[in-house]
């Protein structure tokens, strides 16, 4: 102690850790503890059958999961949701970023409008889309009917396949702007000279996009994919409010299933096991993405 305080560096170090400590403790409490606790809890059965007393079961919860069709279905739905949503958001986000990167009058206002969806509460947005897709009075039906695309109104949130598509649409609306913001930052860092030089070489806009824009914003694309994957894989608010997982479990993503397991069926041990598995899947995918990201960053730095 006195030794550390004797030198300037020693004192600086100590102050540094003191400044860091409160934040780290809070992070440990809110992030590390729940995850570690879930690992521990997943080794017990703790539900109404055991009067909410923990009974050790070893890997029993995980064995149960293997045969739990509802879990596998939720995993499948989550995967579909994530892949479709993130892909479309990426394409759409890139398009919006390209538009917002052009210079035109009112660009500031356009950017403001474009980031609005991202900033609004997901739960409230879910209510808005629920209303839009309403089977009786929904405006989406009304538009399609007026355009003659539909002859009969459809209950969008009442049909399994359509309900999933509707929630995906709502998610795309909500988060495309986030992707666009990230990609726009990447686009802004590309020097105009690169395009001019390329155009002088006779490249078409599409070639420029493929050979300059895409590689240069690859780091931002990967970061966006990483964030969006994680958010989308854990999506809860939107689905819970829009459909509650229905109809017939057709939109029950993993989070909604976990929440129901814990809060509705009070099956804490099994819920913890579900948390653990979801966590592990997420970590694995994030690790792969981070690896690709660092490779892509090395590549663009080499240019």
């Amino acid at each position: 102690m006195s030794n550390a305080l004797r030198t300037i560096r020693g004192r600086e170090h100590l102050t540094g850790w003191l400044l860091l400590l409160p934040a780290l403790m809070l992070l440990a409490l809110v992030f590390a503890y729940p995850i570690l606790r879930a690992f521990w809890l997943s080794l017990f059965i703790e539900n109404l059958g055991t009067n909410l007393e923990p009974v050790f079961t070893g890997l029993g919860n995980y064995v149960r999961m293997v045969g739990d069709g509802r879990f596998w279905q939720s995993l499948w739905i989550t995967t579909i949701f994530t892949v479709i949503a993130v892909t479309i958001e990426l394409v759409l986000g890139m398009a919006i970023a390209l538009v917002l990167n052009e210079s035109f009058r009112g660009r500031g206002l356009a950017r403001t409008i474009a980031i609005l969806p991202w900033a609004l509460p997901t739960a409230l947005i879910a209510l808005s889309w629920q209303w839009i897709f309403n089977g009786e009075f929904g405006v989406w039906n009304d538009i399609l009917l007026r355009l003659g695309i539909l002859q009969e109104p459809i209950n969008w949130l009442g049909e399994p396949g359509l309900a999933l598509a509707s929630t995906i649409a709502a998610d795309i609306w909500k988060t495309t702007s986030f992707v666009a913001i990230l990609l726009l930052a990447g686009l802004q860092s590309i020097s105009e000279d690169l395009y001019e030089a390329h155009a002088i070489d006779g490249a078409t806009p599409w070639q420029s996009f493929r050979q300059i824009t895409l590689p240069m914003v690859m780091p931002q694309i990967l970061i966006a994919v990483l964030f969006r994957f994680a958010q989308s894989f854990g999506i809860f608010d939107l689905v819970q409010v829009m459909t509650g997982g229905g109809p017939a479990g057709s939109t029950e993503v993993v989070s909604v299933y976990i929440y129901a397991t814990v809060m509705r069926y009070l099956d804490f041990g099994y819920g913890a096991a579900l948390v653990v598995i979801t966590f592990l899947i997420l970590v694995a995918v994030v690790a792969i993405a981070a690896f690709l990201l660092s490779k892509a960053q090395n590549r663009t730095e080499g240019v």
Binding site: P34, A230, S255, L282
Partner: peptide
């Protein structure tokens, strides 16, 4: 940690 969905945390936090 910024990538953690909150669903992974709510069970442990509920206990606390």
């Amino acid at each position: 940690v910024t990538l953690f969905p909150y669903i992974l945390l709510f069970l442990g936090l509920l206990e606390i």
